[in-house]
Structure formats: structure tokens, C-alpha cells
């Protein structure tokens, strides 16, 4: 069946929804591990070469005294991805266990996850800008490390995981009868 207005497919429920959610989520978590272990930025100046991981970048920003920016990077690259893994896993788990509790809150949580996920991309863009800009021959060059790639993939995989979740599944269990 197709929508008569936008010709998109119409289904009552996406029966493979949870399978896709788990698959993308696992892929996202796997990609997140090297993203934190390996360097995000490879900096070489006249005197030395240094490698910087995501956490290393945050610590350096704190050393410079840019607490606000450090907080943005920390929230976008660590807290949002980890929070998203937990949130999506909880949503899928609750549907699988036919939970009928907190349906409104779970729907809200889904909205938040869907809205906020793309903001994790900030760090990948930072790396892209720095490495494009800082190409000063011998004086200083910055190149993207392998973590930039795996972090970007992790964000994309988790976005796909969130998009695969069918929020209507939240409402399929009967609400417990409340005597009020």
C-alpha cells in the first residue's frame, strides 16, 4: 500500500524494526570503540609530532581555559553518543519485553534521541576544518586520524538505528488499567 499523497509505502508496523535497530546499534557501538582509542588528530610542527584522541582534545581545551568549548566537545562526542546507545537499547528492550510502563516518557525519549543524534558530528567537522586549514608545509600540518573516520561512522550508524525504530511499537502494549 502506498500513501496517495506522497507515494511513500504505508505499513501498520515495521515488523523488522527491532532487528534493524539492534543491528545498527551494535555496528555503532563497535565503531565507537576505535574512535576513542585511536587518535583523532595528527599534528606535526617543526619540532614534534603529536596525536590527539577525543578525550585528549577535551583535556587540551580545558588547559587553554576554554571551558565552554571543552564542554561542547565533551557533550557532543562522549555524552550524546553514550547516552544514545543506552537510550536506544532501553527503547528496544522495553518494546521486546512488552512493557506498558512510561509510554509517554519513552516517546519523548525517542523524540530527543532523534533530534540530538546528529549533533555528535561536531568533532568530525572540527577535524575536517583543522586538517584543511592547517597545511603550512614545514611549520605545522594537521591530518585526520583513523578515529575521525570511525567516529563519523559510529554517528551515522546510530542515526540509522534511531531512524529504524518504529515509535508506534511503544504504544502497542495495553496501558494498565488505572483506577482513578
Amino acid at each position: 500500500m502506498r500513501c496517495k499523497r506522497c507515494h511513500g509505502p504505508i505499513r501498520s508496523r515495521d515488523t523488522e524494526s527491532l532487528q534493524k535497530v539492534w543491528a545498527w546499534l551494535v555496528a555503532g557501538i563497535i565503531a565507537f570503540i576505535p574512535a576513542n582509542i585511536y587518535p583523532m588528530l595528527l599534528t606535526s610542527t617543526l619540532f614534534d609530532r603529536s596525536e590527539q584522541t577525543i578525550i585528549g582534545g577535551v583535556i587540551e581545551l580545558v588547559h587553554y581555559g576554554s571551558y565552554g568549548i571543552a564542554a561542547i566537545v565533551f557533550i557532543a562526542s562522549i555524552m550524546i553518543p553514550v547516552g544514545k546507545f543506552i537510550a536506544i537499547a532501553y527503547l528496544a528492550w522495553a518494546v521486546q519485553h512488552r512493557s506498558s510502563r512510561n509510554q509517554h516518557q519513552r516517546h519523548k525519549l525517542y523524540d530527543v534521541v532523534e533530534f540530538i543524534g546528529r549533533w555528535s558530528m561536531i568533532d568530525v567537522f572540527v577535524v575536517a576544518i583543522l586538517s584543511a586549514l592547517v597545511q603550512l608545509n614545514a611549520v605545522a600540518t594537521i591530518n585526520p586520524g583513523i578515529a575521525a573516520l570511525s567516529f563519523g561512522l559510529s554517528v551515522i550508524f546510530t542515526m540509522l538505528s534511531a531512524l529504524a525504530f518504529d515509535p508506534r511499537l511503544i504504544w502497542d502494549e495495553e496501558e494498565p488499567v488505572r483506577h482513578d
Binding site: 587553554y64 561536531i122 568533532d123 567537522f125 572540527v126
Partner: peptide, 26 residues
Amino acid sequence: RPWAMAEIFMVGVAVALVKITGMAQV
């Protein structure tokens, strides 16, 4: 809509500018 990230890129630019100001003039 979720995949067009121009506004996120601008925040990335802001972070990159802060990181770089110690190193060079931009």
C-alpha cells in the same frame, strides 16, 4: 532533513577557531 548538517558544521567551525587561535592567526 536530519542528514543536512550545515548548522552543525558552523558549531564545528567555532570549536576549530578556538583550538587554532593559540597556534596561528586566522
